[in-house]
């Protein structure tokens, strides 16, 4: 309802459109983290959340150039996005290594079984 209102009321695509989209993707990532019992599904949820954040970063970077002191292009958001992508790749690598180990030990990828250390 709100979404359609926002679209119809302003044909020009603004910052809010990106933010709403990012929020949606973020919520989707959260949902998949909460509902997936497959560890890799949870990893995918994390990737979604990171992408949502990246969209925000890049969008803010794009729409806030006017605030730069000497009207030079501001690249902070993009740089941060690059770092996020790098770290996401690293995170995925480590997470997958952990999952492989987990699979070797428990012979499954179901996170429900990973509660050996529970008191």
């Amino acid at each position: 309802m709100e979404l359609t209102l926002a679209i119809s009321s302003s044909p020009i695509i603004g910052l809010n459109h990106y933010l709403v989209l990012a929020a949606f993707i973020f919520v989707c990532g959260l949902l998949s983290m909460m509902l997936k019992r497959n560890a890799i599904g949870i990893l995918m949820g994390v990737e979604l959340i990171l992408n949502a954040a990246n969209i925000n970063l890049v969008a803010f970077n794009r729409f806030s150039y006017a605030y730069s002191p000497d009207h030079k292009p501001m690249l902070d958001g993009q740089v941060f996005a690059i770092f996020v992508i790098v770290l996401a790749a690293a995170e995925a690598a480590v997470a997958l290594a952990i999952f492989l180990n987990y699979y070797n030990n428990f012979n499954t990828i179901d996170v429900e079984r990973a509660q050996t250390l529970k008191g």
């Binding site: 983290m33 509902l35 997936k36 990973a114 509660q115 008191g119």
Partner: peptide, 17 residues
């Protein structure tokens, strides 16, 4: 106190959310 400590990551995430 122990009951919520299920050891399941999804429970934690859900609770947090």
């Amino acid at each position: 106190a122990r009951a919520p400590q299920t050891g399941r990551i999804r429970t934690y995430v859900t609770a947090l959310m």
